[in-house]
Amino acid sequence: MIENIVIADDSSTARMIIKRCLEIAGTADANFIEAGNGEEALKIVREQPIDLIVTDLNMPVMDGRALIRHIKASPKLTQLPILVISSVGNEASREDLIEQGAFAVIGKPISPASVAVALEDIIDQDQWG
């Protein structure tokens, strides 16, 4: 069950689009917490229970790659699934991000359908993994 979701993106427009896609994809009842960069997102996940992080890559202060590194380096947070929403969506970048610890990489422009597939995979892994 995905109850608490952090959306990290420096663009408020992007955060609204991501939130809407997540809601349509099946998390309408979730509690959404918005962060303007990786540092804010990291602070949130360290302070409260979070089930999923959805993050952009290109952000000021702390970018998405650094956020992934910090989360994966923390024994307490390492199991937290991270969905990366990125315009940098070629195969080499995807593979590198998955290797760093992203659960999935969704290329922009995102759609509820692409988000739904990733959410199903997260729920499947949570049940059987």
């Binding site: 940098v88 070629n90 080499a92 922009k108 422009p109």
Partner: peptide
């Protein structure tokens, strides 16, 4: 914000189509 988001998406797709699949690229 909306225009910047559109620029970001177009730029990513443009570079994704321009550079080989096995090559990474970076945007600002």
């Amino acid at each position: 914000d909306a225009l910047a988001e559109i620029a970001n998406t177009i730029a990513g797709r443009f570079m994704g189509a321009l550079v080989p699949e096995n090559q990474e690229f970076e945007l600002g």
